[in-house]
Amino acid sequence: MSIQHFRVALIPFFAAFCLPVFAHPETLVKVKDAEDQLGARVGYIELDLNSGKILESFRPEERFPMMSTFKVLLCGAVLSRVDAGQEQLGRRIHYSQNDLVEYSPVTEKHLTDGMTVRELCSAAITMSDNTAANLLLTTIGGPKELTAFLHNMGDHVTRLDRWEPELNEAIPNDERDTTMPAAMATTLRKLLTGELLTLASRQQLIDWMEADKVAGPLLRSALPAGWFIADKSGAGERGSRGIIAALGPDGKPSRIVVIYTTGSQATMDERNRQIAEIGASLIKHW
Rank of each mutant, 00 (worst) to 15 (best):
N272T: 08
I283Q: 07
A182L: 15
S104I: 02
A230I: 07
G90L: 10
M184G: 02
L120V: 05
I45W: 02
Q204P: 02
K71E: 00
F13K: 04
M127E: 13
M66E: 02
T69C: 05
N168L: 05
L111K: 08
K109N: 12
L247K: 00
T178S: 12
L49E: 03
P20H: 10
D33Y: 15
E277Q: 10
F17P: 05
G226Y: 07
F228Y: 13
T139R: 10
V257I: 11
E108C: 07
L55W: 07
P165E: 06
T158C: 03
R92N: 09
S128N: 00
T158Q: 01
A211T: 10
L219E: 03
L73G: 07
A183I: 10
E62C: 07
M268D: 06
L282P: 00
V117S: 03
P60T: 12
L136F: 00
R159M: 07
N168M: 06
L219Y: 03
P172C: 10
G85E: 11
D161V: 06
N50W: 10
V101P: 02
T27G: 03
I54A: 10
A215I: 03
I125Y: 00
L137I: 09
F17A: 10
R202Y: 05
A148I: 13
G216Q: 13
C75S: 07
D212Y: 03
W227N: 01
G236P: 00
G242I: 00
A77G: 08
R176Q: 13
L120D: 00
F64E: 01
T158K: 00
P217E: 10
I125F: 02
P105H: 06
D231G: 04
L10Q: 06
D207T: 13
G263Q: 07
R241D: 02
G85S: 10
R91E: 06
Q204F: 07
R238A: 09
N98F: 15
F70S: 07
M184K: 01
L74N: 02
A132V: 00
T179S: 09
A235Q: 04
R189G: 12
L89P: 07
G76A: 14
M180W: 11
W227L: 01
A222Y: 09
N130F: 00
A245D: 00
K30S: 10
K53T: 15
T261W: 04
P217C: 07
F22L: 13
S68F: 00
Q37T: 12
T139D: 11
L111C: 10
D113N: 12
G236F: 02
V214D: 02
P217I: 06
G239D: 02
A230V: 06
N173D: 15
T178I: 04
S80C: 09
H151K: 15
P165M: 07
L89S: 06
M180V: 14
F58I: 08
